[in-house]
Every structure is written in C-alpha cells, then in structure tokens.
Design a protein around this nucleic acid. Structure first.
Lengths: 232, 232
DNA sequence: TCAAAAGTGTTTCGAATACACCCATGT
DNA sequence: ACATGGGTGTATTCGAAACACTTTTGA
C-alpha cells in the first residue's frame, strides 16, 4: 500500500469538530495505530462514496465517532489537493467545520480524544493546519453571525456565555458588553427564568437563549453599507 | 460517454473570473458547443491532473483562456460534489475566484465572452450558482480587506475608484467617504501626480494607488475586539 | 453587615456617513 | 464669469467599549 505509484485519485472528507470543554476550545482527534504516521493524531473522516454527496458523506463518517444529532452546525471549509499531502497515494481532502454544544458529552471511541486547539499533539498530514484554518473561520464568524448558538447549551447565563466566547475567541471579553452586542443584534433573548446563585452567594443570573439555532448573518456590512442600511 | 454508469469519480477545477468592464462586474464564460447542455454558458476550467496541485491546475486551465499574468488574485471558493451535478458521470468541482484588473484586455478565444454578473445567459450545470457565490465572496472581502487592488489599474483617480467599487458592490457609494475609509485603513495613497481635467473642465483629480497588491485584512475585528485593539 | 456575583446607567471613543463649502480647470 | 468636476472641513450618528454604581443573594 505505501509508496505505490500515484495512479488513482482518491477523495476523502475530513471534519474539524470543535467543542468547548473545560473552558477550552477543543478538537476531536483520533490516534493512528498503523502507518503512515503511526501515533500521530488525525481528523475524523474517510473516503467519499462513489454516489455520495459531500455533505452526506461527512455526516456518515462522523456517525462512527460522534452522534450526528449532536452536531449543531457544519459547513465546508476548504479542499486540499497538494499531491504530496498523503504519502504514496493521491488523496484530495475536503474539510468541514463541525460544532457541538458544550452541554453534550459525545461518547467517543477509545482511539479518539479531545485536545485543546492551542496545544495540539503531533498531528498527521496537513490536519494541524486544517484545525488552525477551522479556528480562524470560527473566530471570524462569531463576529458577524449568530454562530455562537452552536457552541452553547439551550439556555445559559451571561457569565457562562462570556466564558464560552472567551474560549472560542482566545481572549477576554466583558459580559456586560457581550450582552449588549448580542441583544442589540437580536441574537439572544431572556427566557424570564433565573439561575440559582453560586456557592458564595451573589445575585441570581438571568437565563438567556439564542433566538434561533439557524445560522444568520447579523452584521453583514462592516462598512460600505448600501445607502439607508444603517446597522442599528 | 453520456449516460454511462458512474463508476469513476472525476475532479475538475473551475474559475469564476471577474473583471469590471463598462462599469459592470462581468464574468468570463464559454459557450458549450457539444452535449451535454449545448449552447449553455460554462465556467472555464477542466480536469485536475493526476499529479497536479489544485492551485497549479486552475492556473494551467486558465492559461488557455486568459493570460495567467493578468490575474491579480485567485482564491479557492468551494467544492461541489452533488452526485447529479454533472449528467452521466460523477464529477467533483473545486471552484476558484479570479480577478483581473480593469485596465487589461485579455484576449479571449472565440467561444468565450464576458457577461455582466447580474444578467447572465443560460448557464450550464451549477455554474450560475457558483458565479453568485463568487460574487458574494468578492463583495464581503471588499469590506474588510484591500482586495480592491485586484480590480483596478495601477493608478486611478477617486472617481474612477468609486465607479469600480460601485460596479463590484452593486450599489452606489460616495467618493468622499470611500477615500477616507481607504486612506484611514492605509489601503491607498496619493502618487503625487494629477490627472488631466475632463472634457468639460473641472479641477484635475489627484492620482492614487494601492499601497500593496498583496491581500491584507485591514479590518479584522468588526466587533468583539481583543482589549486594546482599537481599530483606529 | 459584608463579600460575591449580576446587571444597569452613563460616558467616552472612534469609525462611518452626510453635507456644506471651497478649489482648480476649460470654455 | 461660470459651469463642471474634485476635494476638504465639519457635524452627526451610532455601535462598541469602559467604568461607575446599584441590585440581589449567601454566609
């Protein structure tokens, strides 16, 4: 199998699955037990079926690693086709970004593990690069869409929401300002309930939810808006 | 060839080539002379070589239609893999966006023509959809990067620049404000020269150029900026 | 009564837009 | 002169960020 002539072009689908675990944006990887790249950690995925749509394929492949119903969002990232990205064979890879809300705990096979995105172990092929690419995509989409819905539980307090955003963005933000931005854009709304106080007391927090769990662009025109399309 | 069983998976690269011509964002298409879809207009591109990188392939394919040196920018858009997107065969397509500055006049083969992006003729397969996708990408990138450099001549007046932006964005903007936005972001600078007055007189316009012709993100954080990363 | 956590009110800031007015040229 | 197109000065708007202060709980 290895070092054979590259006469056939294969196509695989890969997924960068992110979930916020212990306040860290983490990616689901599996450890390769066989060559090539034994011991390196790889993205879940596999060969595209001959009659299979790309989007269907990634869902099918992931069903072996996580429950597909746990994925709150998937989108195509990019396709890599460098001839030497995979040794011995020509394999194109179309990568996806997938997000799992923080309250779920997907049962993962024994060979898989979650790794914080900023301290990855040794990764196989170009998979480390794909994780970085997915992270950039997630970060920027959090700024102009309601994609946060895919990272958080159905309901949450604002401090919890801040923690999730901090983990995904990689820097500190204020709960106060986060609230006003997301309220103004119509992304979140209070449920009317209140969460119990913490162990040391403190005012009970109001509970919020995302108004929709479908992707929406809430801040389309950063600048160069069409006349009359004021962003408020 | 047609209606054969889909036993082989092919992979092609396609390009949505945009150029602003006569104040209209236009796409380069070629007219299919043979089935399937005879008479429909298609994107330039072709089969990916067995040992060929995706980026290299799109450049090679385009060399047959336009001089590659005329492309000021190319980037990957997305990959389509719906099994029925191409009749009779399984063909995946990776689409690219390519931009040609307005001052060039690429010699195009007899079967190709430029079509305004908002009044396309009958298009083949999913190519019309890819043009729309490319247009969305161009529009949004004009808002937060210096991608305008790839659409305009080396030097230009501000009214000319406004006309180019209007064509690409599809709505009217003011030259006054465009100038300040691009100056503030460090995208353009005056050359020091002045353009001759128009046919009816008028003050001579200052000549500008883009400071760099490499893609740069000039407005990374729409909101949720890291502390201290004030955008001015 | 005090500390902790949450939330509101208010100010400041800056980018983007809108608009009035001045400048330079050809006829 | 004056029309024409170009450019600058300035006011306004509005979202985001910063910060002070109030509210509500547990100990």
């Amino acid at each position: 199998m290895p070092t054979m002539a590259k006469k056939v072009m294969g196509h695989e689908v890969l997924a960068v699955i992110f979930q916020i675990r212990s306040n860290a944006l983490s990616a689901l990887l599996w450890r390769r037990a066989k060559p090539p790249q034994t011991g390196a950690w790889a993205l879940p995925g596999g060969a595209l079926g001959i009659h299979e749509d790309l989007d269907d394929s990634i869902r099918r492949q992931l069903a072996q690693k996580v429950d597909v119903r746990e994925l709150a969002h998937t989108e195509q990232l990019e396709t890599r086709g460098t001839p030497d990205r995979y040794p011995g064979q020509r394999v194109l890879a179309t990568a996806y970004l997938g997000l799992i809300p923080a309250h779920l705990d997907p049962r993962a096979p024994a060979d898989t593990a979650w790794h914080p995105a900023d301290e990855l172990p040794r990764t196989a092929f170009d998979h480390g690069d794909l994780v970085a690419s997915a992270r950039r995509r997630l970060r920027s989409k959090l700024s102009y869409t309601n994609l946060g819905f895919a990272l958080v539980p159905p309901t949450f307090t604002l401090s919890e929401l801040r923690d999730y955003y901090q983990a995904a963005l990689g820097y500190g933000i204020s709960a106060t300002n986060l609230q006003r931005v997301l309220i103004r854009r119509g992304q979140i709304e209070p449920t009317g309930e209140a969460a119990p106080s913490g162990r040391h007391g403190g005012r009970p927090a109001a509970v919020f939810r995302f108004r929709t769990r479908q992707l929406e662009v809430t801040d389309a025109f950063a600048v160069l808006r069409p006349p009359g399309a004021a962003s408020g």
